[in-house]
Amino acid sequence: MKWTPLKISLLFIIFLSQLMVLAGFLTYKNLNTVLGSWNKSAHLSVYLKTDILGSERAEIETKIRENQNVQTVEFVDRDKAAKEFQKSFGEYSAGLLTVDELIDLVPETFVVSLKNDLSLLQKVEVFNELIASTKNFSGVDEVSFGGDWLQKFSKLDQTLKSIGTFILAVVLLSVSFLSALMVRILIDDAKAELEVYTLIGATRWFIYKIFLREMLAFVILSLVFSFVTLFGLFIYLKNVFLVRNMTLNFADRLEFLSPQEMIIFAILVGGFIFVSSFISLKTTIQRLNQFSYD
């Protein structure tokens, strides 16, 4: 195969379009997992007053469990809460406070988590219901679920799911159209060549073989280029997030495409380009067989 400027620009365009689709998919996938993990870890804390009666505590728990969307209600007593506090902040509080001293400062809590088939948005609603039904107990000090940011992200989650799917579909369609067009141009460019082949008695399959082999080279090269470029971009961005404290956790969760995803993508793109080149070839050869003499 000879690399003409047309073929190089075709390769570049196919590469760019694949990169676009892949980058879109990768972003979508990672935002989804990040949001998904937020969703899973979303919980409501009901802080109790120190002087609460055991009977009221049981009443509150029953009230919480009445809600059908509640998955688990965990009671964290003072002892446990203090230990946990020590565990997470041990390095900072070392020597300042003992567990015994902490116990008086840390309140007892109910930690409520919801069923996981709920979306973030639905969870926020249920949390608000639970707040309304528990905050009037005299033994309840405070109820909270990190409301503000959760509410914001629940909206993002919803928007992302619908807009993301839509955009991905649009990009996929336009990229398919673009590559079909480029294949068409390439084959039109090779018309003189095709004509010579039909003239000296090449069968259709002989011609298909030559051109499909060329398309295969295109598909493989452009796929390799786009995977490698995407991986480079991914590593670069991950490092950028990793060095910033604020995004460290987020960066930790970022994942590249899995081998299965790459294989599926390669098969889809390769298959599509193959089918569209096959169709263009077929119609071009048919046209040539009628008027190829002049």
Partner: peptide, 24 residues
């Protein structure tokens, strides 16, 4: 038949004013 045309053409050699060679 259309499928036989390539085999039929192999019995003929074509020469044109504009040569029709493969540039690549």
């Amino acid at each position: 038949r259309v499928g036989q045309v390539p085999f039929f053409r192999r019995q003929i050699g074509f020469i044109f004013q504009n040569y029709k060679l493969l540039k690549t």
